[in-house]
Design a protein around this nucleic acid. Structure first.
Length: 370
RNA sequence: GCGGUAUUGGUGAAGUGGUUAACACGCUGGAUUGUGGCUCCAGUAUGCAAGGGUUCGAUCCCCUUAUAUCGCC
């Protein structure tokens, strides 16, 4: 079956909304933060650890798995869920962003994108059809349309041309997608331009996808611009479909996104920050490598319910970081992901209570105190 | 006891008679938003064992002392 979005509650003062997304691998409440597991694993974590932190869905990547181990191998394993032993819902990114972020030399044409493998430098050619074919074989619950993610700032003429082409790519992908058990999402582009975002949202919606995402954000623009990008699009997306803001995971950005009607977020931030020694807390981000934690025998965050905070101290994690021990990245990944998922839980409660704006103001006041 | 060699920051060390003493590690901060997992950026020796001398000028030349190390008696 296709995913089904069930709208439960609209917040009174904002575009925030609570809902449930039903998938073939279970349902989860939205808003929700989606941890990133590019190479068929959320770095350093097991599926059991993800279940324990109430993770609703994870993201994996078409481009990376296409190159290694290859879509056929994942397919032979019985699909991505069986291959990686993850029982919850999985969304696969289309590879569009990797063209933007990994390829140094790329040649984008109407047909598709020619670029070099980041693994061995060999020539690759990715098209909307190919991306869908690979995602079909991976057998994720949600496949993403193949899009072009443009940078910031973007020349208006280029942004317009690219946005229209992404729309044509979306249609091409949809035309070849024929997996009844896999949903397909469209992606809104349009750079920083209001008319292009509106156009993209409206035209992508007309194609009739199972859900919609907003792409092309956090590519170098400031926060104000990013929030505008969201505002330009969400009013034109169908209310009965889930909305996913791609690549955004800063706590404040998640809150601002929810206020503007976003349901799902994904981001590498919690796991990357963890591996580099940083932890989210309600009083701001902290760097556990800092010498002031040398003798701090308290947990990362006082009232946190995560496994890490229930069992370990800052001094110990700092020691692990200084010693380059893998466990540090694991413990902080657990904390950071749990922090963001707990944040979405709190946001759902705020939506239920119609006090989302107050929640935001209090959160920001504490978060930016230092 | 005699002779040789060495002594540069927290560590391993480069280096030159003349503006800010290389580099690496460590240390101290910072960065990180649809993930190329030991990343990137910045800071970190008012001083070259100590004292004296030569010189316009010495970490670099000379002397003394200390310490380390090698060889000989």
């Amino acid at each position: 079956m296709k995913v089904k979005y069930e709208l439960l509650k609209k917040e009174k003062n904002t575009m925030g909304r609570n809902g449930i997304l039903h998938t073939n691998h279970g349902s989860f409440k939205t808003p929700m933060f989606m941890p990133v597991g590019t190479l068929a694993n959320v770095k350093t974590l097991t599926p059991e650890e993800l279940y324990e932190m109430n993770s609703g869905i994870i993201l994996s990547n078409t481009y990376h798995l296409w190159l290694r181990p290859g879509a056929d191998i994942v397919n032979k394993a019985g699909g991505l869920h069986k291959f990686m032993n993850y029982k919850g819902p999985i969304l696969t990114d289309s590879g569009g962003f990797q063209v933007f972020s990994l390829a140094k030399r790329k040649d984008i044409t109407e047909e598709g994108v020619k670029f070099k493998s980041h693994i061995d430098g060999s020539d690759l050619f990715l098209t909307p059809e190919k991306s869908i074919e690979v995602q079909n074989k991976l057998d994720s619950d949600i496949a993403m349309s193949f899009d072009e993610c443009i940078g910031y700032p973007a020349d208006y003429e280029y942004a317009k041309m690219s946005t229209e082409r992404t729309l044509r790519w979306a249609k091409r992908g949809k035309d070849v997608h024929n997996n009844e058990n896999q949903s397909l999402f469209g992606i809104v582009q349009g750079g920083e331009y209001e008319d292009l975002r509106k156009f993209s949202a409206l035209e992508t919606s007309k194609l009739g996808f199972d859900g919609y995402s907003i792409g092309g954000t956090s590519v170098g623009e400031g926060k104000d611009v990013m929030y505008k990008m969201i505002e330009y699009a969400t009013p034109y997306l169908p209310e009965d479909k889930v909305r996913y803001l791609m690549g955004v995971g800063d706590p404040i950005d998640i809150i601002e996104g929810v206020i503007r009607g976003i349901d799902i977020f994904d981001c590498v931030l919690p796991t990357r920050l963890a591996r580099h020694g940083n932890a989210f807390t309600h009083n701001g981000k902290i760097n556990l490598r800092n010498s002031k934690f040398k003798e701090d025998f308290t947990s990362v965050e006082h009232n946190c319910d995560c496994y890490t905070c229930k069992n370990y101290t800052k001094a110990y994690i700092r020691h692990l970081l200084a010693s380059n021990e893998i466990l540090a990245g694991r413990l902080l990944s657990i904390h950071n992901i749990r922090f963001l998922i707990k944040l979405t839980e709190d946001l759902r409660e705020a939506i239920d209570n119609d006090n989302l704006l107050e929640y935001r103001d209090t959160f920001i006041k504490n978060y930016q105190k230092n």
